[in-house]
């Protein structure tokens, strides 16, 4: 089986995988980082979103081998020293989650969205969430949480 190495949440990791292994399965099964979820088989739900080289990627849409040598961040790598990332804190504060299954993907998408688009409004956030499904919240509080986090992070940068 081919070998693969990458940096995940700041740590160098490597493993052997079948060529057909998806990045999400490498993360979940080989590394046991089970915060990244699988919600579909057609790249539609976004439960599996992680950051690869700083960009949001659906990890079910990428082979593990394609991430060879990459810098990967998963939901487990977002909080620093037990301090929640502002987006994580905003989801909690604004009740942006219920069952929590879509949440890691939502949060990773939101972090990327805020980085790319510093001036977010409700309409833009809703459009940008096109690739993420949530069945529980009706999205209203997710949108609220992302908006609040984007304002807070902007404040922190200013």
């Amino acid at each position: 089986m081919p070998g693969v190495s990458m940096t995940v949440n700041g740590k160098a990791v490597s493993g052997e995988v079948e060529a057909r292994t998806l990045l999400v399965h490498f993360l979940r099964e080989n590394l046991r980082l089970t915060g990244t979820h699988v919600g579909c088989d057609t790249s539609q739900c976004g439960a599996c979103v992680v950051h690869v080289n700083g960009k949001a990627v659906k990890s079910c849409t990428m082979l593990a081998l394609q991430a060879d040598g990459a810098q990967v961040t998963t939901i487990e790598g977002l909080a620093k020293n037990g301090e929640l990332h502002p987006v994580q804190a905003a989801f909690k504060e604004h009740h942006g989650l219920q069952c929590g299954f879509c949440t890691p993907g939502m949060i990773m998408t939101a972090v990327d969205m805020i980085r790319r688009l510093p001036d977010l409004d409700e309409t833009t956030i809703r459009q940008q969430l096109e690739g993420n499904l949530c069945r529980c919240t009706g999205y209203q509080n997710i949108v609220k949480a992302i908006h609040a986090a984007s304002l807070e992070m902007k404040g922190a940068r200013a």
């Binding site: 980082l33 915060g35 939901i75 487990e76 929640l84 994580q88 929590g100 890691p104």
Partner: peptide, 16 residues
């Protein structure tokens, strides 16, 4: 009250 269960879900520590 903010939810007690949220910490584990927002940090990817849920156990499904």
């Amino acid at each position: 009250i903010r939810r007690k269960e949220d910490f584990r879900f927002v940090t990817g520590n849920g156990h499904y």
